[in-house]
């Protein structure tokens, strides 16, 4: 890890969902593990998220959703990433996602879904193993 530039990850809350306990804990945990974390706060429009990903030259986008709108908002974000030429950015989803929706999300291109109770170490390990698709 030490010589390589640290992975850059944008964490995003989209839509009206205000549950930010998880995303803030993950942001700190990833920061402490040496990642470069950008968390722009609540109520981000999908367009704004895409802009942040582009401006920050992010390797990963982590979307936090606990309001049950993942099947509406995640496909949108992925489509907009592709349209913006950011299809190489890895997408993670965290929050409350029913089991049945997980295959649908991975089908759409989500690399991994992290549900409640995920140890921080699992997320850190996943990112270290997957590395950067941007700078590889």
């Amino acid at each position: 890890m030490s010589k390589q530039p640290s992975l850059r990850i944008v964490l995003a809350k989209v839509g009206l969902d205000g549950h930010d306990r998880g995303v803030k804990v993950v942001a700190r945990g990833l920061r402490d593990a040496g990642f470069h974390v950008i968390y722009p706060g609540l109520w981000q429009a999908p367009e704004a998220v895409i802009r942040t990903v582009a401006d920050e030259d992010a390797d990963w986008l982590g979307i936090s959703l606990l309001s049950g709108t993942h099947m509406t908002l995640v496909p949108r974000l992925i489509e907009q990433l592709r349209e913006a030429g950011l299809g190489h950015v890895g997408v993670l989803v965290g929050g409350i996602i029913p089991e049945a929706d997980i295959p649908k999300l991975t089908e759409l291109g989500v690399a991994r879904v992290f549900g409640p109770g995920t140890p921080m170490e699992d997320i850190v390990q996943f990112l270290r193993d997957s590395g950067s698709r941007t700078h590889a």
Partner: peptide, 22 residues
């Protein structure tokens, strides 16, 4: 639901996917 809690209407674009959900 979240749009009502946030003080916006069901036909507001920000309400997409949230109407009647929570």
């Amino acid at each position: 639901d979240l749009p009502t809690l946030m003080g916006i209407d069901s036909d507001d674009p920000r309400s997409l996917g949230e109407v009647g959900r929570l």
